[in-house]
């Protein structure tokens, strides 16, 4: 151990804070996507594949066209296509959405690795960060506050989705399809089409999470890029109780917890780094256990979800 230099202990706190913003964006976008899909009564476990395919498509498009925002769009479209595939297969009778999700997870990753091979070496034009550190002349603070534009997109989306779930007709249909198929049919809505839209929309947003990985942070394309972040984001949805704004907080918390390990080690605290690096998972587990109950179903869980049925 040593006295920390430069920003010192404030640097550790700052690194955790800046890390929370840097790391959280893909978790936020994927968990928002999954929230919408699950609200309609379906689980799409394939979002890890969507995330990886989105990352690859975004990177490849940015390499070829030179426009990172076209890359973001491509990631969304790739995600939406996988979502559509999931929805169409699940619309068939007696198909299990969990199993289809796992199949699409593997398909998405496989496609991304196959088509992504020529894009490991080239460099893409990155998304430009939004500078919130202009007030400081400390380079560490300035660079830590270069915030991912997709982070703000995710924040706005979380607020918008929260509002529209409660206040719009489409929000009502979505919740109805997830809570009671009979009620949805009684008002003349096709449950399947609502779920199809929800899964496509969820896939689109999750794909954007991939663009955040490959075009902003860490900002390149390689096969280990996601390493399970899409799966963790799906777990975060349960943690956030299917609530978009809570998805935002949960992602920030998770991102911050992931930054603790590197931040502490950078000032020389190496004791038990495997444990510290497991902090986000321990944290999530702890909160889930704290808030769980054997006697009632998870608050907020859509009742048509195969998880809660």
């Amino acid at each position: 151990m040593t006295e920390a230099g430069e920003l010192g202990w404030w640097g550790v706190l700052f690194a955790i804070f800046a890390g929370a913003i840097r790391v959280s964006t893909p978790y936020l976008l994927v968990s928002l996507g999954e929230t919408i899909t699950e609200k309609s009564g379906r689980t799409n476990l394939g979002l890890e594949g969507t995330l990886v395919l989105g990352a690859m498509c975004a990177f490849a498009t940015s390499v070829i066209t030179g426009s990172p925002w076209l890359g973001v769009l491509a990631a969304g479209v790739a995600g939406a296509s996988l979502g559509l595939l999931h929805a169409l297969i699940c619309n068939l009778p007696r198909v299990n959405d969990i199993a289809v999700g796992i199949a699409l997870f593997l398909l998405g990753v496989g496609l991304a690795f196959y088509f992504g091979k020529p894009f490991i070496e080239p460099r893409a034009t990155m998304l430009t960060g939004i500078s919130l550190g202009f007030w400081s002349d400390h380079p560490a603070i300035r660079s830590g506050l270069e915030v991912n534009p997709l982070f703000f997109l995710g924040l706005l989306l979380a607020i918008f989705l929260q509002w529209s779930l409660i206040n719009t007709k489409w929000g009502l249909y979505l919740r109805m399809a997830g809570e009671s198929e009979d009620a949805a049919r009684a008002v003349g809505r096709s449950v399947q089409s609502v779920r199809t839209y929800a899964t496509v929309f969820g896939g689109f947003i999750s794909g954007l999470g991939g663009a955040s990985l490959s075009l902003f942070y860490p900002g390149n394309w390689n096969e280990g890029l996601s390493s399970g972040q899409g799966l963790m984001a799906i777990a975060l949805v349960i943690f956030a109780r299917w609530n978009p704004v809570r998805c935002f907080y949960a992602s920030l918390l998770f991102g911050g917890a992931s930054a603790i390990g590197p931040a502490l080690q950078s000032v020389g605290i190496n004791q038990g780094y495997y444990l510290i690096n497991a902090a986000p998972y321990v944290f999530t587990l702890g909160l889930l256990i704290y808030s769980s109950s054997a006697s009632y179903r998870l608050a907020g869980a859509p009742s048509e979800l195969s998880l809660s049925r």
């Binding site: 920390a4 230099g5 430069e6 920003l7 640097g11 550790v12 700052f14 690194a15 800046a18 890390g19 840097r22 790391v23 560490a140 660079s143 830590g144 990985l213 942070y217 860490p218 900002g219 390149n220 390689n222 280990g224 890029l225 390493s227 972040q229 992931s258 930054a259 390990g261 590197p262 931040a263 080690q265 950078s266 000032v267 690096n277």
Partner: peptide, 17 residues
């Protein structure tokens, strides 16, 4: 191989000078 953690580590190190 964990790109996000490696990037995070570099950032934390740079913040420490």
């Amino acid at each position: 191989d964990n790109p996000v953690k490696e990037a995070e580590t570099v950032n934390a190190l740079v913040d420490q000078g």
